[in-house]
Design a protein around this nucleic acid. Structure first.
Lengths: 232, 232
DNA sequence: TTCGCTGGATTGTTCAACGATCCAGCAATC
DNA sequence: GATTGCTGGATCGTTGAACAATCCAGCGAA
C-alpha cells in the first residue's frame, strides 16, 4: 500500500551524539510485503502466478498469518488478486485495464503539471530528465526505465499531495508488473527521452498549458502503444 | 480498500430456475471491516479514537487475528491509522489534509467531467441531482448529504474507470469521517443544490469546458469553506 | 525537577488446529 | 461418449492460545 507512516522505530546510533535519528524497523509483515513487491517488480513473479500462503510462509521463514497480512496489503494495491478459498494470484491485465490505468494517469499527471509547482519540485522534474539522459548515454536500459518513472512521479509531486503521490506510486508499481522490461525495448525509450525534455522545458518556462498538452499527447500515444502490444 | 472483488460466493436461489446469481457472502474479516466503516461513517467512532484489537474482537465476537485483517484494510483506505506497538486510531485531520483531499478531487472529478461520458452515465448524474432535490423538498438533511456524494461519484463514473471509482469512493469515505454531518448544516447544502443543477445541465448540453469550470469553482470554494471551519 | 526503574497493558508474531471450500480424478449412470 | 456424482487431498478462513517486544504511567531516587 505504500501506506502511510507505519513501521516500528528503533533508536540507532546510540554511540553517536548527533545521529539520534529514528530509523524505521519495518514490521515483519511489512518486510514480507516489500520482498513480494520487489519480486513482482523484477518479474520474478509473473502475472497469473499463484501464491500459496504456506509456501511463501515457509520460504520466508515467517508465519502464515503474517504472510496473510502482507497479501492483504498487496491486494489493496491491486498487485495481487485475492480469490476467496482459492488463493491469491499475481494480478493479471484484464480487458480495459490499460485504458483504466491511463485514465488515472491522465487525470492526475495532467492536472498536476497544469497547476505548476515550486521551483524545488520543478528542479526534481529536471533532475529526472537528466537522469534519463545519463542512462541513455550509458546505454543503461534498466536505468532508463526508472528514470522515466521518476519523471512522471516528479510531475505528480508538483501538486504536493501525499494522496496523489501514493496513488501514482501504486499505478507505477502496477505498470512495472504488467509492462515488464521485456516489453520495454530501447526503441520505446528513445521516443520519450526528448519528449520529456520538451515537457520539462515548457514547465520551467511557465508554459503550463503547453506542458499539459504535451504530456497528455504522450500519455495518449503511450496508451495506444501498450494497447497494440497487449490486448485491448 | 474498497478492494477489488473479494468475498466468498454462494449459490442461492436453488429453487428458482432463473435467479441462479452468485451472491456475495463476505468473509468475516470483510464484515468486520464493513461494520467499522459503518461506525466511522455514522460518527460512532470519532477521529482520534483508539481501537483496541482485543476489545473490538470481543465486541464483535471474532478473533483478534480477524480484527487485525480488517484493521489492515481500513488502514490502507486511510480511515484508520496504525501506529506500531501503540495501536490503531481513527484517522485525524492533519494540517494540509483538506488541501490534499481537494487536490485529488479536482484532479479526478474535473478530468472526468471534461471527458464527457455515455448517455447512461450522464443520466446517472442527473438522477443524483434529482435525488438531491427530492431530499431538499422533504427537508431530509441526511438524504441531501448522500445525494451530493452520489452526484460527485456519478461524475467520476463518467470516466468508466474502476480505479478512479475506487479512489473516489475512498475519498468520499474520508470526507464522511472528517466532515461529519454536524459540520454540514442545511445552509451549506442549499448552496450547491442549484450549482449541481447547473453543472449537470452543462454536461447534458455537451458544454464540457463550462461544466468543468463550474465544478472546479465549486471544489475550490468548498475547500475554502472547509478550511475555514476546520484548521488549515 | 529530573532521571531511571518497574509493572501492567497492548501489540507483533507464531503455532496448531478444525471446518469450509475448491479441484481433479474416477466411477456410475444415461 | 458425455454427463453426473462422489471422494480425497490441498488450501483457505478463522480461531484460540501463547510469548516476546514495546510502550506508558506511576513511583521512587538522585
Amino acid at each position: 500500500m505504500a501506506s502511510a507512516d507505519q513501521g516500528n522505530y528503533d533508536h540507532v546510533g546510540l554511540n553517536s551524539a548527533r545521529a539520534r535519528v529514528r530509523m524505521k524497523v519495518p514490521s515483519v509483515a511489512e518486510r514480507v510485503a516489500e520482498e513480494l513487491r520487489y519480486q513482482l517488480a523484477e518479474g520474478f513473479l509473473v502475472p497469473g502466478a499463484k501464491l500459496t500462503e504456506a509456501t511463501i510462509a515457509e520460504d520466508l521463514g515467517v508465519s502464515r498469518n503474517t504472510v496473510r497480512e502482507a497479501f492483504a496489503e498487496l491486494a489493496a494495491e491491486r498487485l495481487l488478486l485475492r480469490q476467496p478459498n482459492k488463493g491469491v494470484f499475481v494480478a493479471t491485465l484484464e480487458a480495459g485495464d490499460i485504458h483504466d490505468v491511463y485514465t488515472v494517469r491522465r487525470a492526475i499527471e495532467v492536472s498536476s503539471i497544469r497547476a505548476g509547482g515550486s521551483p524545488e519540485r520543478i528542479a526534481a522534474v529536471r533532475a529526472a530528465v537528466e537522469e534519463g539522459k545519463r542512462a541513455a548515454a550509458a546505454d543503461n536500459n534498466e536505468g532508463l526505465g526508472s528514470a522515466n518513472q521518476h519523471f512522471h512521479g516528479a510531475i505528480v509531486a508538483l501538486a504536493e499531495s501525499n494522496r496523489l503521490d501514493t496513488i501514482m506510486a501504486q499505478i507505477l508499481a502496477e505498470m512495472r508488473l504488467y509492462f515488464h522490461k521485456a516489453t520495454m525495448n530501447a526503441h520505446f525509450y528513445s521516443d520519450w527521452l526528448k519528449e520529456n525534455e520538451q515537457i520539462c522545458s515548457a514547465l520551467e518556462a511557465g508554459e503550463l498549458e503547453r506542458a499539459g498538452d504535451l504530456l497528455l499527447a504522450y500519455l495518449n500515444r503511450s496508451e495506444q502503444q501498450q494497447t497494440a502490444i497487449h490486448g485491448a
